[in-house]
Amino acid sequence: MIEFSKVNKFYGDFHVLKDINLTINKGEVVVVIGPSGSGKSTLLRCINRLETISDGGLTVNGVSVGDKKTNINTLRRNIGMVFQHFHLYPHKTVLQNITLAPMKVLGQSQKEAEETARHYLDKVGILEKAGSYPSQLSGGQQQRVAIARGLAMKPEVMLFDEPTSALDPEMIGEVLDVMKALAREGMTMVVVTHEMGFAREVADRIVFMDEGRVLEEAVPADFYENPREERARLFLSRILNH
């Protein structure tokens, strides 16, 4: 449902993404890993056009993301996104954070949107915080609200951009648990993360990136037991053996 073909991206002279070819199928959980600055987040952010690609083709459900004729707002309805720093709206309650887009974009009534919001808050385990403001929540709770906010639009795919990197170590588990549950339900997910345990347990496929290229794609067992690329081997040895 997501297809990169020969995608390149430049920031000025800097070549961030180099000839990316990647297909993500419906229901698949793809985890993108790699060292900092390898282009993982940029790759993810191209999918919903938070970043524009310089050349090549990128389609979501057959619709070209970069095409001028594509209504980007319509496309984005189907693509939920969770950020490293949550980006909850600080002036709105948890419930209002979740109901905003369903009401304004999908035209749901307040009652309908709140019902949906409560359903997903319950799912991420913090229904009791519906009336709180984001600043009253812990980082882990905020990230779970952000996930519920994404789900409330009933997207076909969820993008996660280092969702646990800004969290206290104690709170990482609660967010990963929500993501695991989501993966088990068959949600299509693209996850940029450094959580190797999560990748190993949940991913259908690991995509390893370095210096703007996809160096290796493999199922987790193969990737972790026997990475083909020297660079991937080095990366794994550095992050796993400490």
């Binding site: 984005r76 939920g80 996104m81 980006h87 887009a101 304004k104 906010r149």
Partner: peptide, 13 residues
């Protein structure tokens, strides 16, 4: 913060 606009736009607003 820039992330506020990104979060809002990525939800389809």
């Amino acid at each position: 913060p820039k992330g506020q606009m990104e979060a809002a736009r990525s939800s389809g607003l």
